[in-house]
Simulated scan of single mutants.
Amino acid sequence: MAKTASDSVSLTRQAYALTDDLMTPNAAVYWVDLLISAALMWGGFLLAATTSSLPVGLVAGLISVLALYRALSFIHELTHIRDDEAPGFRVGWNVLVGVPLMTPSLMYEGVHNVHHVKDRFGTALDPEYLPLSRYTPLSLAGFLFVALLAPIGVLIRSAIVIPLSFLVPPLRRVLKQRLSALVINPDFVREDMAKMRPAWLVQDIACWLWSWGLIAATVAGVLPIRFVLTGLAIFSLATFVNQARTLVAHHWDNDGGKMSLDEQFLDSVNVPPPNLASELWAPVGLRYHALHHLLPKLPYHNLGKAHARLAQALAPDSLYHRASQKGLFEALTALFRRVAQKPAVVSRGPSAAE
């Protein structure tokens, strides 16, 4: 990737200076947002799974998809906040969202942080980066649609792999290193699971027991098949939307080499106002992905304020302004256009994103 004139250090310093008062998470905002999202997720699901009205079911299902996506997206915030900044939030999120969706916080904690390591971003050691702009259009489409299978994947992990791993030590190693991370880079191997945190073990066991409970209730006829199919559909659609969002979070132009801070920032994307729809398909601050890479400790509820300050205060020729895209479809169109114009690289295989 071609080098750019480096002003990222000064940009980072300016950004911190302009947003220093916005760095403290508001625990009340986190809790209220999560509780409302979880209520809409479960309420929409129950209505969609029980109503006899197709229009009502479709609307309820759509609400549940968007609410599930928003609630699940808090797993990203859990990697950046300390427990004392939002007391009980990590446990509450796992109880309301992580374990029921068999996607506990352990699958992102200690993983996403690697994506922010300066010397790993965009390289083969980055769990959340692939040279997607060098894929073929067919491979890129495969990357997008494979996300629909994510619910099946987490069910297999919880119901089969976790219990078997306690009986088969080699499988336990595979589970820890390869099957306990939400990544898009299939070659990524976790390096922090040798000393597994007690909380992570509890999360895994909880997912195992929850999955067996769901299967037993379904086989016994206690849980209607319609509930199961509705839940799978809602979960699949939410992960599909997230995968589409992942495609526009970066430009994916790096070929695996180390990137300068300028290049890392310019490879990332903001979708700021006036695009209001981005709050639905990139919730919990994900619409400000480039800003998040610039200031990773900035809590999601202050990203909008921070962006407004930076957009107003920074010079018109600042790198910051070059990171913005207009919307999801515009960014996806631009990505597929670049893919069609570039020679393809050998794909490392599509994998469901975080």
Rank of each mutant, 00 (worst) to 15 (best):
T12A: 15
F227E: 06
S236Y: 05
V284P: 09
M1N: 01
L167A: 14
G43R: 00
I36W: 07
S278A: 11
V117C: 12
D255F: 11
D187H: 11
M41N: 00
D317W: 13
A344V: 10
L96C: 11
I160W: 03
I160M: 10
A194P: 01
S347D: 05
V228E: 02
H292L: 03
T24H: 10
I152G: 13
M1G: 06
P163N: 04
R178V: 08
A48V: 07
H307A: 15
A308C: 03
R157I: 15
V111T: 13
T50D: 09
L247F: 11
A306Y: 11
K3N: 14
A48N: 02
R338W: 06
P169V: 09
V174Q: 08
R70T: 15
L140A: 14
S52R: 12
A313Q: 05
L101Q: 08
E263S: 15
S64Q: 00
P100V: 12
L78K: 01
A282T: 12
V228C: 05
H293C: 09
L291F: 10
L62A: 12
R309W: 04
S133H: 09
A323S: 06
V183Y: 00
S133Y: 06
A28H: 06
L294G: 06
I152Q: 02
P274K: 00
D262H: 07
L209C: 13
L314W: 07
V339I: 11
G153W: 01
L223I: 15
Y108P: 15
T246H: 08
S318A: 12
S139L: 02
K195P: 04
G327W: 01
G349T: 03
P198I: 04
S180Q: 11
S158R: 00
L96D: 09
Q243G: 11
T123W: 00
I160D: 03
A194H: 02
A199W: 05
E279P: 04
R70M: 08
I162W: 08
L18H: 14
Q177S: 11
G231F: 05
G142E: 00
I162Q: 00
K195Q: 12
L298A: 14
P273W: 03
A5G: 08
G349M: 02
R322C: 14
L335A: 04
S165F: 10
E279M: 06
L335H: 12
S8R: 01
G285E: 01
F45G: 13
V146Q: 04
S158Q: 02
H307E: 10
G257R: 02
D21T: 15
L223P: 13
R172C: 10
G92L: 01
F329H: 05
H293G: 08
L106H: 13
I63T: 06
N113G: 03
L96T: 06
P198H: 05
K326I: 13
L78W: 07
P296F: 08
Y129R: 12
W252G: 00
A308H: 08
S324L: 02
P169Y: 02
L295R: 03
G221R: 07
G43H: 02
